[in-house]
Amino acid sequence: MNIELRDKVAIITGSTLGIGFATAKGLAEAGAKVVLNGRSQAKVDKAVGALRDLVPNAEITGVVADLQSAEGCDTLVKAFPFCDILVNNAGIFGPQDFFETDDATWQRYFDVNIMSAVRLSRAYLPAMADKGWGRVIFLSSESALNIPEDMIHYGMTKTALLSISRGLAKLMRETGVTVNAVLPGPTLSEGVAEMLAEDVAKTGKTLDEVGRDFVKAARPSSIIGRPARVEEVANMIVYACSKQASATTGAALRVDGGVVDTLA
């Protein structure tokens, strides 16, 4: 399959590292004009430079915006008023005891993980519908279906994204715009590597080995028995953004390694 997006503008939020950066690389390789986003100028500049090295002929730019606030979302929209592809990847995660999770933490997760995607989808979808083509992706998680007891605050936000993406797909019916959610399982991103760093230091095992141990302990239902690579998740996102995926909408596309034990 030859995915070709040469005439498309793609915005990927939270894309200086991890799944977001891998997605930006995949979309750039498909010919899309890629807009990277992060919260610091140094990180955005570094990511733009790295992506230009990896995909030399691509058209790549970046914008600094903290999407936790309405003002940050407005900064992004003012810098890039239109896009054909929006990947709502910006998000935060981390384990925390439910009884020690205060209101401010719940609100922060809501603002970053949910409202950034809501605000940007509200800003970009109307023009996509007018044009008759568009792709919006919400980065949910297997934790949306398999709520972890140590990250209830996180799982809640990812479940909400499934509702929003499904509802928006219906709202965009027969417009040529598709809206989907992608559900990664444990993925060996920089953030997860940082979370596992202490175990790597303690055990003397490699990151891959510690990652496998983590999956077997924390997600024993995993069929692949290891964390996914960021590129494996990005492959699904790039496909869902493609012209070939025109009949895929309102879907929850799992890249969870089989963690969620369901036939659907």
Results as ranks from 00 to 15, higher is better:
71 E>K: 03
111 D>R: 08
204 G>P: 09
48 V>F: 06
4 E>N: 15
12 I>H: 01
58 A>R: 07
252 A>R: 00
49 G>T: 13
227 P>T: 07
109 Y>H: 15
47 A>G: 11
232 E>D: 13
133 W>E: 12
38 G>K: 00
2 N>W: 03
51 L>E: 10
47 A>N: 12
134 G>W: 02
204 G>R: 08
83 C>M: 03
58 A>E: 10
134 G>C: 07
72 G>S: 09
127 A>Y: 11
54 L>S: 14
198 E>M: 05
225 G>I: 09
234 A>T: 06
116 S>I: 00
56 P>T: 12
80 F>G: 12
107 Q>N: 05
229 R>K: 14
132 G>N: 10
29 E>L: 13
118 V>Q: 08
244 Q>E: 15
209 E>Q: 13
139 L>A: 06
235 N>K: 13
130 D>K: 13
50 A>N: 12
13 T>K: 03
212 R>E: 11
83 C>Q: 06
87 V>E: 03
227 P>G: 07
6 R>W: 07
73 C>P: 00
233 V>L: 04
89 N>H: 02
163 S>P: 03
216 K>I: 11
180 N>F: 06
93 F>H: 10
199 D>R: 15
139 L>E: 09
38 G>C: 00
251 A>K: 06
147 I>Q: 10
52 R>K: 14
84 D>C: 01
241 C>L: 04
100 E>D: 14
8 K>W: 03
55 V>C: 11
236 M>S: 11
247 A>P: 09
98 F>E: 09
187 T>L: 04
235 N>D: 12
133 W>C: 07
125 L>Y: 13
112 V>C: 03
214 F>E: 02
259 V>C: 13
1 M>G: 15
5 L>G: 04
175 T>M: 09
177 V>T: 02
224 I>T: 09
157 T>M: 06
123 A>Y: 06
149 E>T: 14
206 T>K: 04
151 M>E: 14
100 E>M: 11
13 T>F: 07
125 L>C: 14
181 A>K: 00
238 V>T: 11
66 D>I: 04
144 A>W: 06
110 F>E: 07
133 W>R: 10
188 L>H: 00
226 R>N: 06
245 A>P: 10
52 R>T: 15
2 N>T: 12
24 A>P: 09
264 A>Q: 03
18 G>E: 05
76 L>D: 00
101 T>S: 12
257 G>T: 01
166 R>P: 02
120 L>V: 01
209 E>K: 10
49 G>F: 01
37 N>S: 00
97 D>I: 07
227 P>D: 02
14 G>N: 04
217 A>M: 14
97 D>L: 10
206 T>R: 10
192 V>Y: 00
149 E>R: 15
19 I>H: 02
193 A>I: 09
128 M>Y: 08
254 R>K: 13
109 Y>T: 03
197 A>W: 00
120 L>Y: 05
178 T>Q: 10
155 G>Q: 02
81 P>F: 03
12 I>K: 00
217 A>W: 05
153 H>R: 04
60 I>F: 14
1 M>D: 14
80 F>K: 13
118 V>Y: 15
224 I>Q: 07
56 P>H: 12
63 V>H: 14
254 R>N: 05
66 D>K: 02
150 D>W: 12
195 M>V: 05
189 S>V: 03
45 D>K: 13
106 W>G: 00
138 F>C: 01
20 G>N: 06
165 S>V: 04
242 S>V: 02
120 L>M: 05
